[in-house]
């Protein structure tokens, strides 16, 4: 009898510790890991861009400029841009990686493969975690029409302006990342951006969406766009 009671209580203690450890892992450790990984991704992008810039100056030919970094295809799981959303915090910046696989989204925001390239006609759609892995889109519901979403690919600054959102929908609603998303209110083809994350914060029953249109672009040599100046 004593052995049974002891074994059961030991099991309870073990399971309890496991649960506590798992909560610590999800709430705290994924964030610590993700912050490091995202910083690494951004550092890698900056290194890559300074290399490209140096190479471009060395080559100096018009062919190098014509080829440009924009024609380089996005590689799945690799970063290609940095996103800034002043509404989510002045220091808020996250790398954007190609693809929306689970492993990719642990390292930053994910660009839906098959949607338009950054700044091109069509819909540049990006997904991000609401919670865990650094909580990139924790404050997603605070986004409002008129807010700026700024991206850079190393050669150009793209400033998008939010037109509609946050719009709540169901996970199967793939129409929201169409080239001209129907419920967004857009009627003609254009250069759009869609952000998606989960809703409620810790659940998966719905998705939150915002839509934006490309407002302006400027080369990086011209300095930061107005939306990012303090």
């Amino acid at each position: 009898m004593r052995v049974i009671v002891r074994t059961v209580s030991e099991l309870c203690v073990t399971v309890g510790s496991l649960i506590v450890l798992f909560v610590v892992y999800v709430l705290f450790w994924t964030g610590v890991r993700a912050d490091t990984v995202m910083r690494d991704q951004i550092d890698e992008l900056h290194r890559q861009w300074s290399r490209t810039a140096a190479g471009g100056h060395a080559a100096g030919g018009p062919s190098a400029a014509a080829a440009g970094p924009r024609t380089v295809p996005y590689v799945s799981g690799r970063p290609f841009a940095i996103m800034y959303i002043p509404r989510l915090g002045f220091t808020w910046n996250k790398p954007v990686l190609q693809g929306t696989e689970t492993g990719t989204l642990k390292k930053g925001l994910g660009h839906y493969a098959g949607t338009a390239r950054l700044g091109q006609t069509g819909n540049f759609a990006v997904a991000g975690h609401r919670r865990t892995y650094g909580d990139p889109f924790k404050d997603f519901p605070r986004l409002r029409p008129g807010d700026a979403v700024v991206l850079t690919d190393g050669s150009t600054w793209f400033t998008y302006r939010i037109d509609k959102g946050p719009y709540k929908t169901v996970p199967a609603d793939v129409e929201v990342i169409d080239p001209v998303p129907r419920k967004s209110g857009y009627t003609r083809p254009g250069r759009y951006l869609t952000l998606t994350t989960c809703d409620p914060e810790w659940g998966h029953s719905h998705r939150l969406i915002v839509w934006a249109h490309l407002d302006s672009t400027q080369p990086v040599e011209a300095g930061k766009p107005r939306a990012l100046r303090r």
């Binding site: 839906y112 865990t132 989960c198 998966h204």
Partner: peptide, 15 residues
């Protein structure tokens, strides 16, 4: 174990 929980579902097409 973590991907088996719902916090990872942030896309609309569940790729």
């Amino acid at each position: 174990a973590e991907p088996l929980l719902p916090f990872n579902d942030v896309t609309v097409d569940n790729q």
